[in-house]
Amino acid sequence: MRLSAPVYHLKRKARLLSRQQNIPLHAALDRVAAREGFQGWSLLAAKTQAAVPADDLFSLLSPGDLVLVGARPGQGKTLMSLKLAVGAMKAGNRSAFFTLEDTEKVVLDRFRIIGVDQAEFRELFELDSSDAISADYITRKLASVPRGTLAVVDYLQILDQKREKPELMTQVRALKAFARDKGVIVVFISQIDRSYDPALKPLPDLDDVRLPNPLDLALFDKLFFLHAGKVQYKAAS
């Protein structure tokens, strides 16, 4: 589908609409996407970004990696994480998606958005939306999975939202140790701070990761940052 203007112009329209009508930016993005014939901004972004085969994305990862996928709302970070999961499953590995944010229906609908029939991987994919999700919960659930399994955690900043759960740093360190020991790949979806300004740099980076609670970002082995249909990949030095 041909857009009426480049994506960055459409985003500018959405920011203006957000200010004029005093509505959240994500709602303004969805309205602009609807005018372009899409059901939401995530779908527009998924259809207009350069196609990156899921197999190619997954090939950048290794068993034991701790991965961060960061972007502002509506930029496709959840879709990117699902592409990594699909790449793992195409390679014959298992995948798990632990979400504290979305419903099962929302997650499964996103397979359609990335052009994948989730039924093809029914035996390899597990979706968990329990309110009890934490590092301990995840490691218990994955205790017997084979090496090469990929687990997505949706999302980093709310893992310790409940007071009874350990601090974020403690949980991420525990998952890193578990990933290394079991050869599991753990992918964290991450928010980017609202102060990030694409006019200053085209893609966010580690400095822009939203951290309401302390966390050593050097714990992550691989990083993906997304904005306006572009993807930047970095490996820890």
Results as ranks from 00 to 15, higher is better:
A174N: 05
L215E: 07
S42A: 07
K141A: 11
S95G: 13
A132C: 10
L200T: 10
T48H: 14
P146L: 04
L3A: 05
F98H: 12
L61M: 13
F58L: 07
S59K: 09
P6K: 02
A174I: 01
D117H: 05
R94Y: 14
K77L: 06
R2L: 05
D109Y: 12
V116A: 11
L43A: 09
D65Q: 09
V107N: 14
A132M: 14
D193M: 02
D207I: 07
L44G: 00
K13E: 09
D128E: 14
F125R: 03
D197H: 09
A135V: 01
P204T: 01
A28C: 00
P53Q: 02
K105S: 15
R163M: 07
P198T: 02
L60T: 13
D65F: 06
L60S: 13
L219A: 04
D193T: 08
K83P: 04
L226E: 06
V107L: 15
L68I: 15
M89E: 11
L200F: 04
K141F: 03
D160S: 15
V184T: 15
L142M: 15
R194W: 01
D102M: 15
G76C: 08
L142F: 12
K77T: 03
S129N: 13
F121G: 03
L156F: 06
A71K: 08
A135C: 01
G76R: 02
I23E: 04
V209T: 09
F121Q: 04
Q232G: 12
F98E: 10
P202S: 08
H227R: 12
A34L: 09
L124H: 12
V184I: 15
L79T: 03
K230L: 13
D30H: 00
T103Q: 14
F121C: 04
M89Y: 11
D128C: 15
D65I: 03
F178W: 06
R173L: 00
D205K: 08
L226C: 13
L3G: 05
